[in-house]
């Protein structure tokens, strides 16, 4: 592979853009196809569309019978945690080990300190401001764990509107009932609101903050890997 092509591929991946590398196995010739920037006349346009949905790399025979290998790169899953709380302290390293790119957002200076969280993933600002700079996308999971509607509601609404692959919110059933009313009033549909994982996390009887973090991460992985109908 040409180093310039490898650089273009890595730049697209770093910018969280979906991209596909096409390799002619007979000749070694290669090119990149960027999602959302495929010419209609491109002989691989239809196949690229399918691949960007499935995320699966694999072999493909083109119209001339040449054997191609298509390497599909979708953005790696990201986890945005609203709330620099005790659960988050356990969830951050666990999610990183599982391969997630993790961000923590909390406007409360007492919680969002660099003594408690790595500076490079911490945003000590309101979600409204941080998400304007770093928008959510469908390759992102959002977990809101502050218990405070002033902080949690806006990012939850954004996550549902953006189609984040996982949206979870901490709180009792009663707390969640009130949250549902507020989100309905904000104009979200019942179908959208039903996507919220609440009470948050897989039901494993989690008691400590670290155990709750395990249950939240398990729910996120299930949302990422399992088809919706089997969850």
């Amino acid at each position: 592979m040409d180093v310039t092509l490898l650089q273009e591929l890595n730049q697209a991946r770093a910018a969280r853009r979906a991209v596909m590398l096409v390799t002619h196995l007979d000749t070694g010739a290669q090119r990149l196809i960027h999602r959302g920037d495929v010419a209609e006349t491109d002989p691989l346009a239809e196949e690229a569309g399918k691949r960007f949905l499935s995320g699966k790399s694999g072999l493909f025979s083109d119209a001339d019978g040449a054997e191609l290998f298509l390497t599909v790169h979708l953005p790696p899953p990201r986890l945005v945690i609203i709330g620099a709380v005790h659960i988050s302290k356990a969830l951050v390293p666990m999610a990183q080990l599982a391969g997630f790119d993790v961000r923590v957002i909390d406007p409360r200076g007492a919680f969002a300190t660099e003594a408690r969280f790595p500076a490079e993933l911490l945003h000590a600002d309101w979600p409204e401001d941080v998400l304007a700079q770093h928008p959510l996308d469908p390759y992102t999971a959002l977990a809101a764990v502050t218990h405070d509607p002033k902080i949690d509601d806006f990012p939850l609404e954004q996550a549902l509107r953006t189609g984040c692959f996982y949206v979870g919110a901490l709180g009792s059933r009663k707390t969640h009932g009130k949250r549902v009313e507020r989100l309905l009033a904000a104009g979200l549909s019942e179908a959208q609101i039903q996507r919220i994982d609440a009470p948050i996390g897989l039901s494993i009887g989690a008691a400590s903050p670290a155990e709750i973090a395990v249950s939240v991460l398990a729910s996120i992985i299930a949302a990422l890997r399992l088809p919706a109908e089997t969850r």
Binding site: Q7, S57, L224
Partner: peptide, 19 residues
Amino acid sequence: MSETTASLLPGQDVLETAE
């Protein structure tokens, strides 16, 4: 979400290492 895109740990991305 391709399982081939997630690296095990941050900083262990094979294509970045290759570059």
